[in-house]
């Protein structure tokens, strides 16, 4: 399609506006994390730091509570991700491969879990976990995250399983492979990109989660990274902008890694050509 030069120019103006709207906040955050305290005090803030240095990062990492909260977040995110995958993979396989009465029920549950405000779930959860002494503990949060991120993980995995051609499994069974064998040596390898994507998604949701952690964790020793960062807010004057920005950048790193990965990996058509029509 040919586009007139005026229209083309307008398109570029629009793209640049979007780039500024989307990119400038990120640029400012990163630049703030590299600025010295003197530069924050200056009356005319500059977009890029004049003397970029990493002292904000070292300051942030010297903050005891921050490092501990990162460790807490890491433990919680890894544990809930592993649990979600172990529990969801068989369900996703069943959902994609069998016509069962559980299928509409599961899909209904996935939908319901999106619609209902978490406040309705969190109060009873709190009341269930408290007599079990699981509030204010890391295992308690892990279990809650597992259940909470399962609907979306199931949704994703189900799609990936459905994309593995059934013919491959049939071919394997014709060749005499058992179902378990088929799953382990045919389905799993093909599912790997899907499993990794789902794992990363689950990890990031747990890493970023705020509401359940806020309700369930009171002990300062157990607080997750978002909770500790949120506590600094409102006290910016004392805490200084620089270390806060640096800590925020650090908190975003896992998501960015996830991201770089997704862009590179998931665009390749892994299964194209696996089935010859």
């Amino acid at each position: 399609m040919r586009t007139r030069p005026a229209a083309r120019a307008a398109q570029y103006v629009a793209v640049i506006c979007y780039l500024i709207f989307l990119g400038f906040p990120l640029l400012w955050l990163i630049s703030s994390s590299l600025k010295s305290p003197q530069e924050f005090a200056s009356i005319t803030p500059s977009i890029l730091p004049k003397h970029p240095n990493l002292s904000n990062f070292t300051d942030a990492l010297e903050e005891q509570g921050l490092v501990r909260s990162m460790w807490n977040s890491l433990q919680i995110s890894v544990a809930s991700t592993v649990l979600v995958l172990v529990v969801s993979l068989p369900v996703a396989y069943a959902l994609a491969r069998f016509r069962s009465r559980l299928r509409p029920l599961t899909n209904g549950w996935i939908l319901v879990s999106q619609v209902f405000p978490v406040i309705l779930i969190v109060i009873p959860l709190f009341m269930i976990l408290r007599p079990l002494h699981l509030t204010n503990t890391i295992p308690g949060v892990v279990i809650v995250y597992m259940v909470w991120s399962m609907p979306f993980a199931l949704w994703m995995l189900q799609g990936y399983v459905a994309a593995v051609p059934r013919e491959l499994e049939e071919a394997a069974s014709v060749d005499g492979a058992s179902r378990l064998r088929t799953i382990v040596s045919i389905v799993m390898p093909l599912l790997r990109p899907g499993l990794i994507a789902t794992a990363m998604f689950t990890f990031i949701s747990a890493w970023n989660e705020f509401f359940f952690a806020l309700v369930l964790l009171q002990d300062p020793e157990l607080k997750t990274l978002p909770l500790v960062l949120a506590r600094f807010v409102g006290a910016e004057g004392q805490v200084q902008f620089g270390p806060l920005a640096a800590a925020s950048v650090l908190a975003t790193v896992p998501s960015l890694v996830f991201f770089a990965f997704l862009q590179r990996r998931l665009t390749s058509g892994l299964l194209s050509g696996a089935v010859k029509g």
């Binding site: 979007y18 780039l19 989307l22 990119g23 906040p25 990120l26 400012w28 955050l29 703030s32 990031i204 890493w207 970023n208 705020f210 990274l225 978002p226 960062l229 949120a230 600094f232 807010v233 910016e236 902008f241 806060l244 920005a245 925020s248 908190a251 975003t252 998501s255 960015l256 996830f258 991201f259 862009q263």
Partner: peptide
């Protein structure tokens, strides 16, 4: 790429960033 990054950021970090802005 830029359009996707906000999605992966922790909401708390987004809020802190906009408070700075």
């Amino acid at each position: 790429t830029l359009a996707l990054i906000p999605w992966a950021m922790p909401p708390v970090v987004v809020a802190i960033m906009w408070r700075l802005l």
